[in-house]
Design a protein around this nucleic acid. Structure first.
Lengths: 237, 237
DNA sequence: TCGCACTAAATGTGATCACAACATATTGGA
DNA sequence: TCCAATATGTTGTGATCACATTTAGTGCGA
């Protein structure tokens, strides 16, 4: 056989050089890759229109192209990435229609999810949300766009997760993944200031157990935040 | 080079023995596999809880496990399949909570999508929908559950597609994929009769360009159809 | 007869390879 | 100088392999 193609399989799902890291968890590499790309998307490390290559991501993450392929298919199914007719993968570009639709979908789903979460939101949950919001205020003052985006995502999803929803929540996550890259791009341009703080209104509604007020606050937060985004840049893109 | 390992790759995305079939379309095999599994899901060929194996599907479809892997990841991202902690893949089982949530999500999204489609629904579209509905009536009489499911899917999505929605429509498709297998199982048990024909009401609303009436008809159709399903069998599962 | 250890088959995962399609760079000619 | 044709590198795709893990199956012993 002469060992024609030194396969050096280095086999095994987990990195062989770190036996104590992940002891053979099924799909551990794939999960790590997915988490990496998702946060890259949500924090705007990927710019809309940016080309995403299998081998590029793979070498960047230090894994083989194999798990990256599966993750890309997975994210493409959620429309967080697009596979062009020639097979090339890229971060989807925003359009006026897409933007309006995402806004509409968020307004349909998120207030409802928040209302579903309300009965399960304890006082300690509210306190945690307040902490996040205070940190958001700091990011707004210092103009930290990435920090704002991460914390804003945390604020909403810490709340939404309490709904225990297995159906609606993934739909909402898909929406966030879709406008994340665009959001980052625009925030970098127009800044993150002068946002009315509907988060505070949400917290007040949580304290008073007022589902209608919570729905309204979330809806306003969405309309306000995205309304500020959609007004200027989209037609010029 | 001596060609050390004649792998007989039969390389190429398309079958080499059928050069006129798909002339090298990128991802043609994957698309074919995905379509096959999707329709299997929507028409209930896959029973909830059924185990789905890579090699099984691959040999069944006459392809390598490779494209099947990607499609499974894709469908798992839409929650049309679930990947259990040990990696095994199976059709998701229905639960009372899941069912209620899917119902809620459908009621939130589908009336809105229908209303979005209304301005683009021409008279010929209405006629086409009527044809489908008449065929549905025939299936209901003859008790053809599979035919009913396919045509019901057609009725709704022919309408929804006219909305031109790129965001909401995929969300709705994901929902249908999730309750498809369960729907089939229950229809086989309780039959498809005694459904109030809200499709006719929808058609009337389309003729009169009444968005509110269309929303209401769609919502009633959803509530009625799924209400009949959810009442009996779920607790006994 | 039942329970448990052991063996064997099956399954998902990660890696690598060969190839066709595509994009880009390079070169040749007018 | 400019454009077309070619050559080169890159990218996604499908296939196959090796391996860890898990499941099913079997036989042995109490």
């Amino acid at each position: 056989m002469e060992n024609p193609t030194k396969p050096t399989p280095e086999a095994g799902p987990a990195s062989p050089d770190k036996p104590s890291d992940t002891p053979g968890q099924r799909g551990a590499t794939r999960a790590q890759v997915e988490q990496a790309i998702r946060t890259s998307l949500l924090t705007g490390r990927f710019i809309p229109g940016k080309a995403v290559t299998l081998r590029g991501l793979a070498s960047e993450l230090g894994v083989s192209p194999m798990p990256v392929r599966e993750v890309i298919q997975r994210l493409a199914a959620e429309h967080a990435l697009v596979i062009k007719p020639n097979g090339r993968v890229q971060v989807p570009e925003m359009s006026s229609e897409r933007f309006d639709e995402i806004l509409k979908a968020r307004l349909l789903l998120e207030p409802e999810v928040a209302a579903m979460a309300l009965p399960h939101l304890s006082a300690s949950d509210a306190a945690e949300l307040l902490d996040i919001d205070l940190e958001i205020d700091r990011c707004l003052e210092s103009g930290d766009a990435v920090g704002y985006m991460q914390l804003n995502h945390q604020f909403h999803f810490r709340m939404y997760q309490k709904s225990g929803s297995q159906i609606l929540l993934p739909l909402v996550e898909s929406l966030w993944l879709q406008f994340g890259p665009y959001m980052r791009m625009v925030y970098g341009r127009v800044g993150t200031a002068n946002l009315v703080d509907w988060h505070k209104q949400s917290l007040k509604a949580i304290e008073t157990r007022d589902a209608t007020a919570l729905r309204q606050a979330i809806a306003s937060d969405i309309s306000d935040g995205m309304g500020m985004l959609g007004r200027d840049c989209l037609p010029t893109l």
